[in-house]
């Protein structure tokens, strides 16, 4: 209970601010309607009318919750209006991008740590890559992937997700692989260890805590990359596409429910990655030094 107390306070505060915001933003429409009808509604009537508009500027939390529930439970998972369907498309791409990002990040980090040449040539480009707005890059990646014969949107979307998620893995792995101190390296030197043995016996295991810490950031970045990939690329499925549809058809409820579906998906992914991290830490001696 001690753990949930503060979380509950924050959530309740957010809901309170949200309700106040809904009231203030949706009031204009209620007043306009009233003026047109020539009536003078009291406060309770205005309040009631701001909380259940179909096309509210800012839908109230309970409306979003209802829409979310409807989209998850009441629609068949094969339906184009099911959030489970769209969420699964996004999840799939996120995982593909995540794996791509991990592989790219680890391979580049190993190269950078083992080779001074790679350190000098690759690292600056890796940093520059993150300064380019991915929204600008996404359509180009889609065009190039199609030209290369990718067939579906999965590949370019996964590349965009991997493009965002490789960087935290790279930076953490470089730090992790370089974390063994002079004494640890001297010790292996006294054993006459080969560079390969130094890597497998010392550098790699020493980097694993850094690796797992970076996975949480990488999985979130991969999800963001996937949704960004779904926005400007003409995708028709995925939570990002759903948000765009909501925006284009002037239906904020679709946008908000897709947004929350994405947030719930992110929470689930991070929870799973944290679980894997905990198991790994336990297998590596409890993580204490």
């Amino acid at each position: 209970m001690k753990r949930f107390g503060p979380v509950l306070v924050v959530v309740l505060t957010i809901f309170a601010i949200w309700y106040v915001g809904s009231f203030l933003m949706n009031r204009t429409w209620v007043m306009d309607q009233a003026a047109r009808a020539g009536t003078d509604p009291g406060f309770t009537e205005v309040l009631r009318d701001t909380m259940n508009q179909d096309r509210a500027k800012l839908p109230a939390p309970h409306q979003v919750a209802a829409e979310l529930y409807d989209g998850v439970v009441n629609k068949k998972v094969t339906s184009k209006r099911s959030l489970v369907y769209h969420g699964f498309i996004t999840f799939q791409t996120t995982m593909a991008g995540f794996v791509l990002g991990i592989v790219a990040g680890v391979v580049l980090a190993v190269a950078i740590v083992l080779s001074r040449f790679a350190d000098l040539t690759l690292m600056p480009w890796a940093i520059i890559s993150q300064t380019i707005p991915v929204v600008a890059l996404a359509p180009m990646i889609v065009v190039l992937a199609n030209a290369a014969g990718a067939g579906s949107l999965l590949v370019p979307k996964a590349i965009i997700a991997g493009y965002l998620s490789f960087f935290p893995v790279l930076v953490s792995m470089v730090a992790g692989l370089r974390s063994p101190g002079g004494m640890q390296l001297d010790l292996l030197r006294t054993y006459g260890a080969s560079p390969g043995q130094v890597f497998w016996k010392l550098r790699l295991p020493a980097s694993l805590p850094y690796f797992f810490a970076s996975l949480k950031i990488a999985v979130a970045a991969s999800l963001v990359g996937t949704i960004v990939g779904e926005l400007p690329t003409g995708a028709i499925s995925g939570l990002g596409a759903r948000m765009l549809i909501g925006s284009q058809f002037g239906n904020p409820m679709i946008m908000w429910s897709a947004l929350f579906a994405a947030a719930i998906l992110a929470a689930m992914l991070i929870w799973i990655v944290s679980g894997i991290e905990k198991i790994a830490v336990r297998m590596m001696g409890g993580g204490q030094t």
Partner: peptide, 20 residues
């Protein structure tokens, strides 16, 4: 050193935390 003629003990134990 290459013939592993000596064992070296450092000021800190420097045990690998991930190994028993």
């Amino acid at each position: 050193r290459k013939a592993r003629a000596y064992g070296y003990v450092f000021q800190a134990a420097g045990l690998y935390p991930w190994r028993t």
